[in-house]
């Protein structure tokens, strides 16, 4: 029995050491990009529009960049819930361009399944994840979580977030964003992409002289300089969503550090916290769940769409929708 326990401990130690080595090696992609090791290209998945999302619109009044959570492997939206969310958002905001083909966990928008060395491994992981195997999906999540931590780490964040800003600008330009018109930009960061959204703003602000808003959908983010660079940030969260509290690991999010970017942004009223109901972080009961209903009978998905579309309307002066309500500095939003 002791031998078995000893073997178990040894295997656990080997796995743990492997994970730690993986974590320590993870910044090399970002650092190598800065050093010019991987060239200058920003990769694009060339996904056709479905008529709602990724549609080029002339005279658009707002550009919405959707950055998905840590389960992504490329710029392609595989999640049906996310597809449904984006289509509904497009219907609610017909004058907005919605862009979702950005992979926020790569410095040059290169999909995991397109990497030169580990593409086969990630394609295998993706196939296994789609088939339902949890471990493969967790490997993808872990890899992307490390990129989120890189974006939050002050040693690497200037590099990673600059890269992300370039990818976002590249995405906007691909959809005919006119920098002279200064059309408002809304970066919707879901889950871990909340950090990517916030981090990129500091540098996107230097490239575009237009209003930039961040909508954090259950977003997990640190106290980032981007919080002071946004025109406004909306942090949308559900009462049952505990993962969004992981951002509180960052000391700058604590009230104790009054001079942190987060606390300064709060004092400057750059951040609005929106409790939109009993949603959890993802899947059933999550923000994008169409089957779970609020007491009013509105699905969680429709309510999330309504909240975000109201935010966009408020800052683009589009006409209000039929189920609109006021986005204030209060901490809860009720239909």
């Amino acid at each position: 029995m002791l031998e078995t326990l000893g073997d178990l401990a040894t295997y656990f130690g080997i796995v743990l050491m492997g994970l730690l080595i993986w974590a320590a090696l993870s910044p090399f992609e970002t650092l190598g990009w800065w050093a010019g090791w991987f060239g200058e290209k920003i990769y694009v998945d060339n996904l056709p529009s479905d008529g709602f999302v990724r549609a080029v619109r002339d005279d658009s009044r707002g550009y919405i960049l959707f950055l998905s959570g840590i389960g992504r492997v490329s710029g392609e939206t595989f999640s049906r819930r996310e597809q449904g969310f984006l289509q509904r958002l497009a219907v609610a905001l017909p004058d907005a361009v919605i862009i979702d083909d950005i992979f926020p966990y790569s410095v040059n928008n290169l999909a995991l399944t397109g990497q030169p060395v580990f593409a086969r491994f990630w394609r295998w992981a993706l196939r296994r994840k789609i088939d339902g195997a949890a471990l493969a999906g967790n490997l993808i999540n872990l890899r992307n979580v490390l990129q989120v931590l890189i974006s939050a780490d002050r040693r690497y964040s200037p590099i990673y977030n600059q890269a992300m800003a370039e990818v976002l600008l590249h995405g906007l330009l691909r959809y005919n964003y006119d920098v002279n018109r200064k059309t408002p930009i809304f970066i919707v960061g879901y889950s871990g992409a909340g950090q990517m959204a916030v981090g990129a703003v500091t540098y996107l602000r230097e490239l575009i002289d237009a209003p930039i808003y961040v909508v954090s959908l259950g977003g997990i983010f640190s106290s980032d300089p981007g919080l002071l660079a946004v025109d406004h940030m909306y942090h949308i969260y559900g009462t049952e969503d505990w993962p969004q509290k992981l951002g509180l690991i960052a000391p700058g999010r604590w009230p104790l550090f009054a001079a942190s970017e987060w606390n300064r942004a709060r004092r400057q009223e750059l951040i609005t916290l929106l409790n939109i109901g009993p949603m959890c972080h993802t899947s059933t009961g999550g923000y994008l769940d169409i089957k779970s209903l609020l007491p009013s009978g509105v699905s969680y998905l429709d309510h999330t769409v309504a909240v975000i579309s109201e935010i966009v309307r408020k800052h683009t002066q589009l006409p209000a929708g039929s189920n609109s309500f006021s986005i204030t500095d209060s901490t809860s939003v009720q239909t």
Binding site: W34, E40, K41, I42, V56, I159, Q162, A163, E166, H170, L173, R174, Y175, N176, D178, V179, N180, E206, L207
Partner: peptide
């Protein structure tokens, strides 16, 4: 890393038409 961006963006816009945008984005970098 790409400090010339702001200058390039202005010049590039005057050279490219709206229709050419998507096909010519890469030249900006």
């Amino acid at each position: 890393r790409h400090r010339a961006w702001p200058e390039n963006l202005g010049n590039w816009r005057t050279r490219m038409s709206q229709r050419d945008l998507r096909g010519n984005v890469g030249k900006l970098f």
